[in-house]
Nucleic acid binder design. Sequence first.
RNA 1: GAGCCGUUAGCUCAGUCGGUAGAGCAUCUGCCUUUUAAGCAGAGGGUCGCUGGUUCGAUCCCAGCACGGCUCACCA
Length: 524
Amino acid sequence: MTGEDAAWPRLPHLTLPHRSQYSAHLETPTMPDDHEQTVVRRKKLQALRARGVNPYPNDFRPDHSAGEIHARCDGLGEAELAAAAPARVAGRIVGLRDFGKAGFVHFQDRTGRLQVHARRDRLSEADFDLYRTLDVGDVAGFGGQPFRTRTGELTIEANSVRLLAKALRPLPEKWHGLHDVETRYRQRYVDLVVNPDVRRIFRMRAAVITGLRRFLTARDYVEVETPMMQPIPGGAAARPFVTHHNALDVDLYLRIAPELYLKRLVVGGLERVFELSRVFRNEGLSTRHNPEFTMLEFYQAYATDEDLMVLTEEMLSSLARDVTGQTAVEYGGHTIELAPPWPRRPMIELVAEKADVPADRLLDRDAVAAVASRRGIAVGPDASAGHLLGALFEALVEPTLVQPTFVTRFPVELSPLARRNDGDPRFVDRFELIVAGHEIANAFSELNDPDDQRGRFEEQRRARAAGDLEAQPMDEDYLRALEYGLPPTAGEGIGVDRLVMLLTGATSIREVILFPQLRPESPA
RNA sequence: GAGCCGUUAGCUCAGUCGGUAGAGCAUCUGCCUUUUAAGCAGAGGGUCGCUGGUUCGAUCCCAGCACGGCUCACCA
């Protein structure tokens, strides 16, 4: 048996039905939601087909982008332009000004916009007729010579015109554009075509993700992928989405965090790992919450939370410089300076200042409960001093922290996976980075004592039994991994969407997620 | 889940103290071979989100529903 033919018998020659057989359904030129403009465009489409013009060909290859034409020609004088090589360009038509026997077309491609001039005496009759059928929104290709118009705009004098994709629906208005937020999210493709700022934001998002990868990879971190479908959803306090695997007949959960898997990898000797991808939390939606969002988590053996503060300062300030060109960003009416160093403040001190009580009183359960109720915070019978301190922090302090601030020394009750502070076991070696009132990063020295970890899981189990649906479930395999020995390690999670919001000035997470979650359009 | 606000032409928006609705752009027709939101002349285009109620009459008032926005709750 030689070759692959035996294992992979040749398929019988495929005989596809002739194209014309597909077009039967096209003979009815209207669709249910058609309006006047779509009907007109469908008629043009039919007329082109009747003339033998394929309105959706794929044999045109541009040899320059709009940006390349500008880069090459913007500085040239008339004589030099006349000597420049002709170009083939393609893109979506975003503007048309017709003068009867000539006209101007603006198209845009991934690099920008460029103008084309079409004149009857420079085009074949067929190409000029085709130009006359073009609509704003069509995708077209042009060949021709660069020149400069009377008003100085670099333009291609077309000697050929191709329709590459007929648009049957009109684009939104050229001046006011598309504003309707619902349409922008549901039809992001239209939003991207007509709103340059939207394109800018998603390019910046891509730069953030590339920059994060580069930063960690340069520091010898290994990028890994761990299960999105997990039998035990751990690593964060959140409710998961449930799904079911038929063949195994088990329920699986979309992960709420990759944390426990990543630390298993550190046990395995991958001493520096990171994962940059989606997590899923079954929560309400808001300007700061989408049910699926992008998380960066990274873990480094032989490091502490203090090391990660330094790393985070370097990472985010250099990222801001790479993505925006500077370390200061405008957000929500504030100028936020990301150049390090950033203040490091124990949570209890911040709360003591805002609540105007001595810090040591906040260590006493009854005292902190009194402060909390005075501030209108509900005090449940099970709420510990640490829980109440956390609630006070969120209510009084977090919204007021505009400039980047590391909030340190979290209560152990809030941190079931973090290492206890050596000097005070009521606290853990953890920090959150708060910027513009939002949590951007959360990091801690990892709990690697398997017995302490088991006790923390037990505590979570009790909370769960008491009705806390977000308490973390026991994970025996994770404990087994810890029993093999997790090196002393520090780990961090960064909410990438919120980071992109910060760097782009977006006040809603939906502005930095291409397809944010919305209710289905028509409840079927 | 709660409160407030919104939904009118393809798009952006006016408007009707209840009497079958307008503008700009876009579309269509005519003119126009260097325009820049091109220009000039003319024309067409509407289930006023959906359902019900009040009323002689509802796009407008009332109720319910749908979708969206903001705030809160939930949520690190």
